[in-house]
């Protein structure tokens, strides 16, 4: 039986309580809204893009512990990365979340993001963990669309 502690790891609970990069960015070059209609989570993601590099990224919004912690850890992880590196990280993160639940997740190359390995055992929560990343996609494409996880 899967344990709740697989999902709610200490690191996740800490980031939920005190999220990193949780603020409005007044000099953002890009901004996008993310919305999960299933749970009503809303997220605003701000980014400052310099050349092909994400110089700074912050977020604000309301959401569950998983979506908030995911946004917090994501912003830490992609700050200073190139757009292509962020994209590649998302691919790996997505695999981590959606892999078969009976196979032990491989968090290699994901750093802190690997704490979300337990999410694959809670399929109903995958969208919570990807909301920030979907919103990031919108930011990277520089459109004004609201990202949806459905």
């Amino acid at each position: 039986m899967t344990d709740l502690r697989d999902l709610y790891q200490e690191v996740i609970l800490d980031h939920n309580k005190s999220p990193h990069n949780y603020r409005e960015m007044t000099d953002a070059t890009r901004m996008a809204l993310g919305y999960n209609p299933l749970c009503g989570d809303k997220m605003k993601l701000y980014a400052k893009i310099e050349g092909d590099r994400i110089a700074d990224v912050t977020f604000q919004g309301s959401g569950c512990a998983i979506s908030k912690a995911s946004a917090s850890i994501m912003t830490d992880a992609i700050k200073g990365k190139t757009l292509a590196e962020a994209e590649a990280l998302y691919g790996k993160f997505h695999d981590l979340l959606t892999g078969p639940p009976d196979v032990k997740a491989d968090g290699a190359g994901l750093g802190k993001l690997a704490v979300f390995s337990g999410v694959r055992e809670f399929p109903a929560r995958v969208k919570c963990a990807t909301l920030a990343w979907h919103t990031l996609q919108t930011v990277l494409k520089n459109t004004q669309d609201v990202a949806k996880t459905e």
Binding site: Y8, C39, D41, C64, I66, R125, C128
Partner: peptide, 11 residues
């Protein structure tokens, strides 16, 4: 307080 409904639901 301080717990999102979705997290309540999962637990």
């Amino acid at each position: 307080e301080n717990v999102h409904p979705h997290d309540i639901g999962t637990i």
